[in-house]
């Protein structure tokens, strides 16, 4: 009988595969990271040098990662958290203290990354990569050079109307509109939140798509002519669309950093420390930068960086823009509620 043969074969296969999965090696490390944010070759190199095999799982937002860790033991040894999430994780006692300064390679960490607002003594975290959130436009489409202002993004010129790509990211979009409105991105004042909503709603008719996925592809295929982007993505866009230009808006742009953290209950604590220490070697940090397009925090990694990365103003920020950077912030409950209501109103 057909069905029975299918079922028999299927269950045999399932049992076999389960058995195969159960045989686990000792030198293991479970790594939980953003997708497309770590060069796969580097895992091989790490395994070759230390004998530790890394298994990668990915997530799409800090909050997803938080939800899993908050819920309890997840089996992960290293996670990557953005600045404000470092604050949350330490406060919620989800991070294990490992005293990064005691690691051999910590001496390679460049200033100001040797300290951090939410973890000043670096007891819980080490910077992996850092970057900015601005926007990219296709200079072939623009009739003249665009002003370095969020105005170009929120109130686009005719040639860009309907060809705007926005990030489908509540935090990033709200922050950008807050910079443009000149208000605090963690505002608790409903009137200020209303200003932010007005900007976003006025922009909506010109937006082709809200999406954080495939921004590079969308620009390269000329589906949109302007896209809010992380600077590393902008760098990678330029590889297939040379006319792409990254803008540092003068009203301010988010400067974010992502950090390695060892979560509570990590089953391979020593391996996790080995990995973090290994990632502070200049050539390994440089490999990560070359892959992701974002800057690392390690002295001496310059020597190993791709030339295109070093010469790209999107990645290697010109000094004059330094005062435009606004660091990440862990907003209060009330501010988050306002933000979420603005976002919901925008999309209802």
């Amino acid at each position: 009988m057909k069905l029975r043969s299918i079922l028999l074969g299927a269950s045999a296969f399932a049992l076999l595969s389960l058995g195969a999965g159960a045989a686990k090696a000792d030198g293991e490390l479970f790594f939980y990271n953003w997708s497309n944010y770590f060069p796969p070759e580097l895992f091989d190199k790490f395994e070759k040098e230390t004998g530790i095999k890394v298994t990668l799982d990915v997530y799409d937002s800090n909050e997803t990662m938080l939800a899993k860790l908050q819920a309890g033991a997840s089996g992960y040894d290293i996670v990557v958290a953005s600045d404000y999430m470092v604050d949350v994780m330490i406060k919620e006692k989800l991070a294990t203290e490992f005293d990064a300064k005691s690691l051999e390679n910590f001496k390679n960490v460049a200033k100001p990354h040797d300290t951090m607002k939410y973890d000043p003594d670096r007891k819980y975290s080490v910077t992996y990569l850092w970057g900015t959130t601005g926007f990219t436009y296709d200079s072939d489409v623009a009739k003249e050079k665009l002003d370095d202002s969020w105005k170009e993004f929120f109130e686009p010129r005719p040639e860009f109307q309907g060809k705007i790509g926005a990030l489908n990211d509540e935090v990033e979009m709200y922050a950008a509109a807050a910079y443009y409105a000149g208000v605090d991105k963690c505002t608790e004042d409903p009137k200020e939140a209303q200003k932010i909503l007005d900007i976003l709603q006025k922009q909506k008719p010109y937006v082709a798509v809200y999406s954080s996925e495939g921004t590079i592809d969308r620009m390269a295929a000329k589906e949109v002519a302007m896209h809010m982007q992380w600077n590393g993505a902008s760098h990678r866009t330029k590889e297939s669309l040379p006319s792409a230009v990254f803008v540092y808006p003068r009203e301010g742009l988010s400067f974010w950093s992502d950090h390695f953290i060892i979560p509570k209950g990590s089953p391979h604590f020593e391996n996790a420390k080995t990995f973090i220490n290994w990632m502070m070697q200049p050539e390994n940090a440089a490999a990560a930068s070359n892959y992701a397009g974002y800057m690392n925090a390690i002295k001496g990694s310059d020597a190993y960086l791709d030339e295109s990365l070093k010469t790209d103003p999107a990645v290697n920020m010109p000094e004059k823009y330094a005062d435009r950077l606004v660091p990440g912030k862990n907003c209060s409950e009330k501010a988050r509620d306002l933000r979420n209501r603005v976002w919901t109103k925008l999309k209802s």
Binding site: S61, E63, T64, D169, E170, R336, R339, N340, T344, K347
Partner: peptide, 12 residues
Amino acid sequence: NLIGSQFGAARN
């Protein structure tokens, strides 16, 4: 999407 955002950025 609305429900997802409550467990996401809104953390509610």
